[in-house]
Design a protein around this nucleic acid. Structure first.
Lengths: 180, 180
DNA sequence: CCTATCATGTAATCCGTTACATGATTAT
DNA sequence: ATAATCATGTAACGGATTACATGATAGG
C-alpha cells in the first residue's frame, strides 16, 4: 500500500489495457499497445516490463507467475487500480499537448522545406490511410465499447490530413521554385 | 573535441537560438524559447543551464564568463556547432511525430467526453487565437528570415483548428445527450 | 539443417521533470 | 519597508531510450 501517487501516462496505458483485456503478460501488453493506442502514444516494450512492476509495488496491479513452463509474470488490475484508472478518466486535467514535431523544429530554424517536406508528406499520408482503414474496420464490426477507439482514430485522421496538406504544400512550393 | 554525436532536440533548440541571436546567457535562452519556439516545443529553464554545458563539452558552443558583476556564463555557437546545426537542418530524418495527447488517451480508454471536452476546447481555442495574432504580427512587420516562424505558426494554426473542432464537437454531442 | 523472425527479458545511461533556493528589482 | 515578481541558478530522482542477450518456432 505504498501509493506514491505519481502515475505517468505509461501507468494509465498499462492499467487501461489490463482493465480491458484482463490479466496479461508484458508481451501481451506489448501486443495490445502495438495494435491500438500505440499508433498515438507508443511505449517501448522494456517499459511494459518495468511499469507493471512499479504498479505492483503501488498495489494497483497484482503479480503472479505462470505455474509451469517459463513461469512468466502475469499481471492483473486490482480494485485499487481500477479506482486509480477511473479517477484519472474522470478528471479534467487540461494540460494542453504540444506539437513537438521535429520537422517543424527544423522549419522554424530555417531548414529548406524541400529537403524534408516530401518524406514527411509521404509518411503522414501512409499513416492517414492506416487510420482510415482501421476506422472503417472498427465501424464495420460495430463493436460496442470501441467508442473511444473510434473517436481516437477520428482525431488521428483529422490531424494526419492537416499534416499531409501542410507538407505537400511545402513540397509543391519548393518544387515550383526549383523548377523555375 | 569529445563529440558524442547524440544531440537531442533540446540541443538543436539551443544551437539554433545561439545561431540566430548570438552569444547568450541561459536566461536569455529562456526568454528566446518562451517568445518563439516554446509555443510548440517548450524547454524547462533548468535544461537551458544544463544543455549548453553539454554542448560546450562537445565543442559545439564556447563558454565565457562576464567580466564584472555576476560573472554569468555566456555561450556562443562555434563553427563546429554551426556545422552540426546545418547538417541536422539538411537531413530528412523522417521520424513521424506521435500525437501523445493525454486527452485522447483518456478518450481511448473510455472517458466520458463531456468530462474533458469543454476545457480542452477552450484551451485550444485560446492557443489558436494566440497563434493567429502572432502570425499577423510577424506578417505585418515583414521580417525577412522569419519565414520559418511563419510556417511554424501556420502549422500550429491548422492543428489548433482541428483540435478546437474535435473537442467542440464532443462537448456539443455530450451536451445534447445530457439535455434530453 | 540453418537462418530469420518471434518471444522474452535485463542493464546502463541520461535527459527531463520537479523541486529547492536565493539575489535583484519594482511596486505599494 | 515590505511584498511581489523577476532573474538566476543547483540538486535529486526516476522514467524513457537504447542496446544487449538468448530461447523458441517456423520456413526454406
Amino acid at each position: 500500500m505504498s501509493s506514491d501517487q505519481t502515475l505517468t501516462p505509461t501507468s494509465y496505458i498499462v492499467l487501461g489495457l489490463l482493465a480491458n483485456a484482463g490479466a496479461s503478460t508484458p508481451y501481451a501488453l506489448k501486443q495490445g499497445v502495438a495494435g491500438s493506442i500505440g499508433h498515438f502514444w507508443s511505449v517501448p516494450h522494456s517499459q511494459l516490463y518495468a511499469e507493471p512492476e512499479r504498479l505492483a509495488r503501488a498495489g494497483l496491479v497484482s503479480e503472479e507467475r505462470e505455474p509451469g513452463g517459463r513461469r512468466r509474470r502475469v499481471y492483473a488490475i486490482t480494485d485499487r487500480g481500477r479506482e486509480a484508472l477511473a479517477s484519472w478518466l474522470a478528471t479534467d486535467d487540461v494540460r494542453l499537448p504540444e506539437l513537438r514535431d521535429a520537422g517543424l523544429l527544423k522549419l522554424f530554424f530555417g531548414a529548406e522545406p524541400g529537403a524534408i517536406a516530401p518524406q514527411l508528406a509521404a509518411g503522414h499520408r501512409e499513416r492517414l490511410e492506416l487510420y482510415r482503414s482501421l476506422h472503417e474496420g472498427l465501424q464495420r464490426m460495430g463493436e460496442p465499447a470501441a467508442g473511444g477507439a473510434l473517436l481516437t482514430l477520428e482525431a488521428g485522421i483529422a490531424h494526419a490530413e492537416v499534416w499531409v496538406a501542410f507538407w505537400e504544400r511545402l513540397a509543391g512550393e519548393d518544387q515550383a521554385g526549383d523548377a523555375r
